[in-house]
Design a protein around this nucleic acid. Sequence first.
DNA 1: CAATCGCTTCACT
DNA 2: CTAACGAGTGAAGCGATTG
Length: 350
Amino acid sequence: MTLVLFIDMDYFYAACEEARHPEVKGKPVVVGTAPPNDKLRGVVQTCNYEARKLGIHSAMPTSQAFKLDKNLVYFGDDYKYYGEMSEKVMALLKAYGHRTEVVSIDEAALDLGEMGYDGARGQAEAIKKEIMAKFGLPCTIGISTGKIYAKMMCDESKPNGLGIIEEKDLKAFLKGKDVIRILGVGKKTADRLNAMGIDTIGKLAKADPNVLIDNFGIFGKELYQLANGIDTSRVEDKYTILSIGRERTLQKETTDMKVVESMIKELAKEAIEELNRQHLWFKGISVKAKYTDFTDKIKNKQFNNYTDSLDLLTTEGVKLIRPLITDRAVRKVGIRVSSLAKREGQKKLS
DNA sequence: CAATCGCTTCACT
DNA sequence: CTAACGAGTGAAGCGATTG
């Protein structure tokens, strides 16, 4: 029986800030999205456990967080730094020699193979210790027979934990859990399941698989299998980026194409920087305008050839977004490149 | 009729 | 008090279009 180890960094962005500002440890720390010049207009990205105790959580408006504690420590997000820390952690994990999947900036899965539960525990303890010693970052690890179960166990063991769920205990482990705990099931899907009378994974396991498939397609089948102890997910050693985008709230809502244009230029530059860092080309672009009523509109375009040209992205981006800028006031704009390809070994046509 | 396109919806931090 | 607070990143889903 091969085992999967799932690791999730605890309150990652806030922990990164604590690592480089040790003096704030023990205080409530919030990392927020930071629209230029007005942090109160953003929302909380991540916060440490001291802040959570006060009721602060992800996606809460920063203004509201300050109402709960006017003395909290606030940092505007710094993706570049978090990305660097993430890369260091991932490199450390890969050095253990197992097939390793980078799931997100702060999560990874390792296929431990046939080392047994005791071996897996030893490995997990070593990893936790090394990450703390080298980077000062806490993390939580879950271990089970499949990636998704390992992740669920990980979620359950936070913070700074280590949880193992053995195969013989799997059914009992899953039975009472809310369906929303399943990876890929958010509020909307959970509501639909609830409406069908399914609120726990135990009930999901007993549901009619055909009804699930009718309602959710292929995902319905996966849900059914998962609820019954079959985790078909695999630990993949490659991590494919499908798109890279940047979006930002304007300082002030506007109908002025000039303002939108200069923001698009700025965002295009940032997106290309990331594209270059990842050594990719793009073939598709999309732009987005979000209006004051919080609805948004997106425009896409595909090119015939791959490119990495900032000029092209900027000019085409501006052209694409023009029809979205009308007399409706816009509060946020964004640009994204997609249909990506690795640079090496391929010839750029132009 | 399958692949691709253009756009919306959803999940998550 | 369930209205108003409301960022950013990215993938998945899906109907329309096209070769």
